[in-house]
Design a protein around this nucleic acid. Structure first.
Length: 821
DNA sequence: AGCACGCCGACT
DNA sequence: GTCGGCGTGCTC
């Protein structure tokens, strides 16, 4: 890319731009800019370009010095009235493209608001001749379905394809076209999300000439004189017949109608402004160090604050500091379905200066929040991982709350980690990054240890609230027990009873939903498994169904054993549904509620549960890890962790880290109000350091142990990893391609001594070998240095010797994977 | 991704 | 002998 003067005088007649298209292509394409667009084209602009025999969305990367050999085409148009992001963000997107080995055009598409891109789609319609002939010519069922649909009007090709199912043949359709029965034409599709505009009325008539007007017209002008130009919809509140009246008055030249952009408002109920509490001396020290750094170049701080130490207040004051220095602030929070405490706190302190970018927004609302940021109407944006792309200029501060949370890792097509990108963006913008957590990720704590980050501690709880007392209960002795006695120890049930007597609330945490997750044939011992995944099904009592938690498959719970045909299936194991039933049986008068994905799927359901908790209409809350995130429970004084080991035994080197974080976070839910909290932590591994460290709320003890284990086994943060996953319906094809990649990798490694330090693991079948009928194999590559590792993987997948996957086989790269199963 | 071109098996 | 499958290659 050659960035230069947008209007180079010597090249006025052949201005060339380099463009990335929103397709899975790594190339850059050169286009000529027609004279009419010359003034408007700029780096970062979204453009419509001809590409092959259709038109697609592209992004201007820069100006080109000379044309390539290939014939040039012209840009067809600009897609936005104003640039969607500052050109200064382009190096950030380029960095993401390089680091995560993902095409730049797709990075941009993923970063910008969804639903705005356009591309040509083929629109198929019947000709007059086809209308007569085809109904008789259509033989097969799919042909009949397609012709029936076409007889009702033109239709997009992908819609027809879906209608025709697997039998659909494009060649057959081409034939119909040759015979003159159907025609195809390109039409621009997509772009369904646009800025919202409303009709506004502006008065034109001078006051003196109003006397001749009718009473309603005079009334309307009076409202406008008082309020200024108004949306027609708002005017209706004053004058019910406004819509019609305005139209007639506009025709008579008394008012002008104009379309103006308006913002869809996602903020919902207003939040009352807070009274900033005075910072504690400890908070003050933390603020002085970090606040003074804002505006003076790049730095990253790791803010380690125990629960209740007032991290949020530190964030708020830092944000105020950044605003005072005329810089903008980006706040990332873990993705949860609901507004978080952090979000609420920022809105209470900064009001309408805050833009929201969480997942609860519609695509339209999200676009509007984006535009508010882009237009400089807000100085703070707060949101989940994709908010890292917020189009701010002059960023002074990026805060990542609960930085250890796995939710910052985006899975799917472009796999990025928003926490890592926060540091990258801060570095590029010469800003300050603050990563906050009570239980930092090993990676971040290590970065602080080696001096890449600066660690700041908050050890004191505000108001001198005591940390909860944690009792570890060994479950091993109960192994022989059956049913509820196996999981509900005397210590826990006594604690619950005591709480209920005191009219206090109880939280019971079990990291598994459903009723029973081990469905074993009573006759032959065979486990009931999903047909489409290699995963045991879980019984759900409420829906009386066996469900797969990986692909969503569900079948009525009357199935017979697939091996011996017996219909006696034992329902072993435990999930939140069964736990809630047991507890209700044990405490018949208690009001028990359950909070997991099953009970909060419906919109508003989670709010209802939280509201009932706050109003003390719930005595015992049973929940999965959902309860550990982002909510305050002021009346809960007892937390019961039913089985702390569920996440400990997963085949993933981060299992210990995740378990520690989860337990420490759940335990932190106890006693956040006035009363001190108690935690009963039940486990089969009372001596495991993840458990003992969580019991002692001792992060550093956990870190010291875990970091040794990582070093000894060569895991991150001492190495970097890239996972290559091969998936497809055809098992043989998946295995074959995985092996070819493995062989290519070995050959590459032998050929270049620089790759000697890399470790290739696999190819092997993934721990979850099949999900939704897709077989999964993987290759894991480890190395101490990121440059060599990435160069190797790039060569393996995109180099000259890279094997090309057969159709139906997909290869996905996951740089710095978080979930290894 | 989407679309066209080009080479091998089952039908008129 | 064609029709029609989908492997391969390209898009400024």
């Amino acid at each position: 890319m050659t960035a230069r003067d947008p209007f180079p005088s010597e090249a006025r007649d052949d201005l060339l731009v380099e463009v990335a298209v929103a397709l899975p292509l790594f190339g850059r394409y050169t286009y000529a800019v027609p004279a009419a667009l010359r003034e408007m084209v700029a780096v970062g602009r979204r453009v419509l370009v001809p590409f092959g025999r259709r038109r697609v969305t592209g992004y201007v990367l820069g100006f080109a010095a000379d044309a390539p050999a290939a014939a040039l085409k012209q840009i067809e148009g600009l897609l936005d009235p104003d640039p969607l992001f500052p050109a200064a963000m382009l190096p950030f997107f380029q960095w993401i493209s390089d680091y995560y080995m993902h095409p730049l055009g797709e990075v941009l598409q993923a970063a910008l608001p969804t639903g705005i891109n356009v591309a040509d789609q083929q629109l198929v319609s019947l000709t007059d001749e086809g209308r007569e002939v085809l109904p008789e010519q259509a033989r097969t069922p799919w042909e009949r379905a397609v012709v029936e649909r076409l007889s009702r009007g033109a239709c997009r090709l992908p819609v027809l394809q879906r209608l025709g199912g697997d039998d659909f043949s494009r060649t057959a359709l081409q034939q119909w076209e040759q015979k003159g029965w159907v025609t195809r034409q390109n039409t621009l599709g997509g772009g369904r999300i646009r800025p919202k505009t409303e009709r506004f009325v502006r008065p034109l008539t001078e006051p003196a000439s109003q006397e001749r007007l009718s009473a309603p017209r005079r009334a309307l002008l009076a409202v406008l004189a008082q309020r200024g130009a108004m949306a027609v919809s708002a005017l209706k509140a004053h004058i019910p017949t406004a819509a019609d009246l305005v139209r007639r008055m506009a025709a008579d030249g008394q008012v002008a109608i104009e379309w103006r952009a308006v913002y869809r408002d996602p903020l919902g109920a207003p939040i009352t402004p807070d009274n900033p509490p005075a910072p504690t001396p400890e908070q003050q020290r933390a603020l002085e160090g970090m606040g003074a750094a804002i505006g003076k170049g790049y730095r990253t701080f790791l803010l380690v604050g125990v629960t209740g130490s007032g991290k949020t207040e530190v964030y708020l004051r830092l944000a105020a500091e950044a605003l005072a220095r005329h810089t903008t602030v980006l706040v990332l929070v873990p993705e949860i379905a609901l507004i978080t405490q952090t979000e609420r706190a920022f809105r209470a302190r900064f009001g309408r200066q805050v833009a929201l970018l969480h997942s609860g927004l519609s695509d339209g609302e999200r676009l509007d929040q984006w535009q508010r940021i882009r237009n400089g109407e807000v100085a703070i944006a707060i949101g989940a991982r994709s908010a890292i792309f917020a189009p701010f200029e002059q960023i002074g501060l990026i805060i990542v709350d609960e930085e250890h949370d796995d939710a910052y890792k985006q899975e799917g097509a472009l796999r990025y980690n928003a926490r890592d990108l926060a540091v990258v963006r801060a570095r590029q913008a010469e800003a300050v990054a603050v990563l906050g957590s009570a239980t930092p990720s090993l990676q971040s704590a290590y970065n602080a240890q080696i001096g890449k980050f600066e660690r700041i501690n908050l050890f004191e709880r505000v108001d001198q609230r005591r940390m909860p007392e944690i009792f570890v209960q060994d479950l091993t002795d109960l192994r022989e027990e059956r049913g509820s006695r196996r999981f509900l120890t005397a210590a826990l049930t006594e604690g619950v009873r005591h709480c209920l007597e005191q009219k206090e609330q109880v939280l019971l945490f079990l990291n598994r939903r459903g009723f029973a997750n081990a469905l074993i044939c009573a006759a032959c011992g065979q486990a009931v498994q999903c047909d489409r995944c290699d995963i045991s099904l879980t019984y759900h009592q409420q829906s009386n169904a066996y469900k797969c938690h990986y692909c969503g498959f569900s079948q009525a719970a009357v199935a017979r054993c697939s091996r011996c045909g017996s219909n006696r299936i034992n329902r072993l194991g435990i999930g939140t549904e069964k736990l809630a039933a047991w507890i209700q049986e044990l405490f018949p008068t208690a009001r028990v509620a359950r909070m997991d994905r099953d009970t909060t799927r419906r919109k508003g359901a989670l709010v209802k549960i939280l509201k009932a908790l706050r109003e003390r209409r719930i005595d015992i809350l049973v929940g999965t890890q959902m309860v550990a995130k982002g909510h305050d429970y002021p009346y809960i004084t007892l937390v019961g962790i039913i089985c702390a080991d569920l996440s400990l035994s997963l085949p993933d080197f981060r299992a210990g880290e995740r378990t520690f974080q989860l337990l420490a976070q759940v335990a932190g839910r106890a006693g956040r109000g006035q009363r001190p909290g108690r935690v009963v932590l039940q486990t089969y591994n009372p001596l495991h350091f993840s458990i003992t460290a969580a019991r002692d709320q001792d992060y550093d003890a956990f870190y010291r142990q875990e970091i040794q284990f990582r070093q000894a086994l060569g895991y991150p943060p001492f190495t970097r990893m890239v996972q290559v996953r091969i998936t497809g319906r055809d098992q043989k094809g998946v295995i074959a391609h995985a092996r070819r990649l493995g062989e290519t990798g070995s050959a590459l490694q032998q050929a270049d001594p620089a790759y000697g330090e890399l470790v290739l693991l696999g190819p092997i079948e993934a721990a979850l070998a099949r999900i939704a009928d897709h077989h999964r194999w993987q290759l894991l590559i480890k190395g101490p240095r990121v440059a060599a590792l990435h160069r190797f993987v790039h060569q393996l997948l995109f180099g000259p010797d890279a094997p090309t996957p057969k159709s139906g086989i997909r290869v996905a790269v996951d740089v710095d994977p978080v979930f290894l199963m």
